[in-house]
Design a protein around this nucleic acid. Sequence first.
DNA 1: CTGAAAGCGCTTACAG
DNA 2: CTGAAAGCGCTTACAG
Lengths: 334, 334
Amino acid sequence: MAVTMNDVARAAGVSLKTVSNVLNDYEFIRPATRQKVNEAIAELGYEANLTARSLRSGKTRMLGLVLSDLSVPYYGELASKLMKVASLRGYRVLVEQSDANVDNELSALQGPFRQLTDGLLFTPLAMEADAVASSRGNKPVVLLGEYILDARFDLVTMKNEEAARAVTAHLLAGGRRRVAVVGAHPEDSGGSAGLRLSGYRKALEDAGIAFDPALMAPGGWWRDAGAAAVAGLLDAGVPFDAVFGLNDTLALGAMHELLIRGIKVPQDVAVAGFDDIDEARFASPSLTTVSPGMDEIAERSIGLLIDRIEGLQPEDDGVHVEADFILKIRESAP
Amino acid sequence: MAVTMNDVARAAGVSLKTVSNVLNDYEFIRPATRQKVNEAIAELGYEANLTARSLRSGKTRMLGLVLSDLSVPYYGELASKLMKVASLRGYRVLVEQSDANVDNELSALQGPFRQLTDGLLFTPLAMEADAVASSRGNKPVVLLGEYILDARFDLVTMKNEEAARAVTAHLLAGGRRRVAVVGAHPEDSGGSAGLRLSGYRKALEDAGIAFDPALMAPGGWWRDAGAAAVAGLLDAGVPFDAVFGLNDTLALGAMHELLIRGIKVPQDVAVAGFDDIDEARFASPSLTTVSPGMDEIAERSIGLLIDRIEGLQPEDDGVHVEADFILKIRESAP
DNA sequence: CTGAAAGCGCTTACAG
DNA sequence: CTGAAAGCGCTTACAG
């Protein structure tokens, strides 16, 4: 059997409560008592039983993280950061994959997953705001992402519109006048795609350049879509001197297509992306992009969630955080 | 307060034990009793308290997964698969990142992480076999990877050597005679790099082609290393008609360098990789590679671990599993 | 087939 | 500052 607090108490010649006090850093313990207990702990190799602690205290010191799938590079990187930040505050992260499916999101919000965690970091990809509000239970939930902007929720997100505006402005400041935008549909609005497209249009407006719908190449957010978009523009004879990919994967696909057709980047066409994934740094030429502040997103969301769990954050309306972005100027658009 | 088993027992007019029997699918319960209990459960919205169950039973129904970092694409994909497979058998996966650091690996093996999980899937990146053996405790551990091959351990891995031999043989069967190999050092032996290099050499031998050290381009396993390796060979004037990257990232970097220099893939130079990451499928041209059987690795390792936990696997020596690989022939080397 | 009792290892009021 | 008691919500022998 494992060593218990009772064994420690007996070895130290004190009561159970005193051992508990030492373990929980209770303030008013005589140094001598504390030392006796600590010696007994060391001697017996005692380790607290976390399950028993959870049962009694009602806290697990685990945070739930709900996202679509860890195999998506952005989420893999995010999960990694969140786990590191949580660990510094003494919490673990338990991940649940929703596959962006409504039923899975709902069961992550309501099912046994909630019991195992003191609070939730939730990326709503399928559920509507009202559904989330009515099924989130009574433990804290912090939303991650931009799909639901609602005073009822705590939310940590990135500056999609401003960052897209800044990176587009950078292309224009470099003398580019015909910036193709890859990955957006005209009808996008509230999601990442819509907000980034809107930032692009504002930058054009700022520079007094008319928006040309011919420069907009819609499509999925994958590498092949970026390549296809550029191929489409070239084959249609649409002139352009820069490409803004709404994410890095698109931008890299676009750049690849330009290069194999003998078009020089950045001399003939400048390319910029969004996300600053690892691959952007390693591409050749390296990719100019915008870093959406994933470190800050991780720190603020974990901080906010733990403050809610520990009652440190006053129970007002939802707190909304937008992480600062950083423009990463690299070879593809100097 | 939450609804407890006691409330259910009272509502159904039976004892606590009977409710427990129903919940645990005990065989010999009268259908009428079972139905009464199930109705009470539904009516009260009862959900079992997992923490209490764990405390009493000593089982958490969680599996620990120790790997270096979820932001590494291969590990993100692996974690995702493992979680899905475990879920089908009623287990969750709790991830711990070791950063390939000895101290972190040791504390994952010995610390509180073990308490929270019924068994461990462990990727040993820094610890030696003996250290793992002496600190693995008494709950089951299944190793993932090829660094430790030892009868004391359960191990699930891939056929590094055979798969490398097969993909090289495919290049040779296509008429290539000068296959550059990217990412290996001559002195590599037991790790992935060494095993894959050895497979490459065996394929050459099978075909009666002498190994030419000039075709070996060492370097890290990243995109830029692949590009640099190809650049080095070209600049040195070493002739070659194919490239085998010891992983896909290397192969993609190599292919990129060939394309921007105007060398046609596969007409002038064929390219093949190893791993079959998502990116390989989306590259243009799509990348010929070897899929190391991640699905099988996930299923076998989870299956073996759970069998050990539930006592279904006899306590003999360690079980060693090598997943079957699949050659994925795509455009870069048809 | 079902019941009454014990106990997993902690923390939490309540005293003193 | 410290102690004795209760109890978190289950499962597990033990009876019958």
